[in-house]
Design a protein around this nucleic acid. Structure first.
Lengths: 332, 332
DNA sequence: CATGTATATACTCTCTTTGAGAATATTAAG
DNA sequence: CTTAATATTCTCAAAGAGAGTATATACATG
């Protein structure tokens, strides 16, 4: 009640920042496009820029900024989340104490054309989240950070708070029944941030590139936006055929599988993956085959757009292969 | 390249609007909280207000506004989407030609406490989207709007454009193979908007309440935000136990089923629903039973929070019952 | 030209999940 | 003591998911 009129006047000056997570898959690795500088000057950052008057739509503004900074033109674009909490904010970049709102976007492109505008470079995204790559079994970093996580759980004075932390850890990192869930990327990042395991470039006095934290830092909130993007993409892949935005016009089933594995960060069972793709009617023959693979030539297929209309949820509802190498070597 | 410096200067004045879709389920009906006025004065609108400096977080600002306007305090809150396209904007509400950014939120509450701040009222959400309620079979409105949709598909001059429209219609409304998909609410609304079937209060000269369009109009972009909310909720219900945010502390399985049916807008198969809920371990006994139901008393159960930790995706992966009454009476 | 190896593709088998219906239990009302 | 109404459980078939194994094709090497 009391807030009614007071709030009306105080609508402060706001800068809106459009930030892009641009993803591609090359040679079976998931990559993200980064620029040098960002807010701090040295740390890696995502392409971004302020919303301006001439941008008719938000997405248009994003495309303009990305093209200007990286030379990359975007295909598939999707809004992720809007960040605007004051606590998260660092030294306001010439905004004169005003608030900064960051709207994060996910963009999918086909091939990394490396030499672009200026300092844009592609990086394997697991560089920023080493604990997310389970393709060759449980990643080693997890063993390293485990003590810190356990300590964090045991830290609080009250038993209730400890239990709450245990539960949160269980959900995020799959300890405690549920098992690792590949699309809880953001929850894991947030928790790791809280624990102090990851440090960003512009705060906590960490160094520019690889501070004392786990994984490479980024400027501002960008690593969090990247985590949001990965989580979204990993979730979406299951019920929408978004992988194909990352594939060349013609590709083999193995390439497709490796792309999915790269994004999901886990190995898949080959026969089942092929069956799934084929019976979903997601691809069709091109007639051509690959050459010089060292083995039997693979058929080249292409995405079948009709699948969008036929299936209610045309995606790749993949689950991890339970192969021998993914055994947990957590505590030994 | 050319845009580089020009954009930096033109970052215009921006007003950020926080808008809430507040959902509850009472008596098996999905309801949304609306206020009179909004931007135009007469049309129904969602609770909303500008972001102010004293709001430390966006969510906090939203809660403050909702409480001030409706007296309702919020529990579960989730960000939906940020709208900011200039084309969509109407007469700028005293923003002096500046841009208005709308951040939409979804909130779930337990019981509609009706008499609140001032003019807040609860409405069945199918009032705004009559074509979305398939609980008692295919809704009649669909037959009414079908001619307009077909005409829209046939309208373009080029065959390619017609094919593209046919495909889009097929995906959204389930003509053409896929069948009706309950979570494509937004796609259907956008398409209906494009076709001219729905009209909003502040544009196209439509009347305040029930114009010539299908379903009740809302102020500004609010009906679109509501559509986004319903779509999100219908999707989320499948892999996260969000329904329980809407249930009282103790409830019967039938009440739970009816709540899910209300949200999803489709009938469910009772025995299968029960099996799903029980084997997922989502609920536990309270020991109590209902009385005076006119039949065998039902057990009262409560939500079992441990399910969050145990299951990777604890939701109600429901699909429509194909009962006799859902037969299509489209063309006869 | 035979052989080994790497890759692609096909087939089979089992176990679980899902969709649908029927059957049984428990109360209130006539 | 029947009947109606609702809650709860059981059964059964069909489809789907997970995993293992076998065969086909091309290239490299001796």
């Amino acid at each position: 009640m009391k807030t009614g009129t007071a709030q009306h006047r105080a609508s402060a000056s706001v800068t809106v920042d459009l930030t892009a997570v641009i993803v591609a898959v090359t040679d079976g690795q998931p990559r993200v496009l980064t620029v040098a500088g960002g807010t701090s000057g040295s740390a890696e950052a995502l392409p971004s820029g302020p919303l301006a008057r001439q941008h008719r739509t938000l997405e248009q503004g994003l495309r303009a900024w990305v093209e200007a900074q990286t030379g990359q033109s975007l295909g598939y674009v999707e809004q992720l989340y809007t960040f605007g909490d004051l606590d998260r904010q660092l030294a306001p970049p010439s905004a004169g104490g005003g608030r900064v709102l960051s709207i994060g976007y996910l963009a999918l492109v086909r091939e990394p054309r490396d030499r672009s505008g200026d300092a844009a470079t592609w990086h394997d995204w697991y560089r920023y989240f080493p604990w997310e790559d389970w393709r060759r079994g449980r990643p080693d970093v997890l063993a390293d950070i485990e003590p810190a996580l356990s300590a964090w759980v045991r830290a609080p004075a009250t038993a209730g708070e400890r239990e709450s932390r245990r539960e949160r850890l269980g959900v995020a990192f799959g300890t405690g029944g549920g098992g690792w869930s590949e699309d809880r990327v953001l929850e894991r990042y947030e928790l790791a941030y809280e624990v102090g395991l990851v440090q960003e470039a512009d705060r906590e006095g960490a160094a520019g590139t690889a501070g004392p934290g786990v994984g490479v830092a980024m400027g501002g909130d960008h690593r969090r936006i990247l985590a949001t993007a990965i989580a979204r993409l990993r979730g979406k892949i299951k019920y929408r055929p978004v992988v194909f935005e990352l594939m060349p016009p013609a590709f083999t089933l193995l390439q497709l599988q490796q792309a999915v594995e790269a994004l999901a960060g886990m190995p898949l069972h080959k026969p089942n993956f092929r069956r799934l793709v084929e019976q979903q009617g997601l691809v069709e023959e091109t007639g051509a085959v690959t050459l010089g693979t060292g083995g039997r030539p693979a058929r080249l297929v292409r995405f079948r757009r009709e699948a969008l209309v036929e299936r209610p949820a045309p995606g790749l509802r993949v689950r991890a292969r339970s192969g021998r190498r993914s055994g947990s070597r957590s505590s030994s």
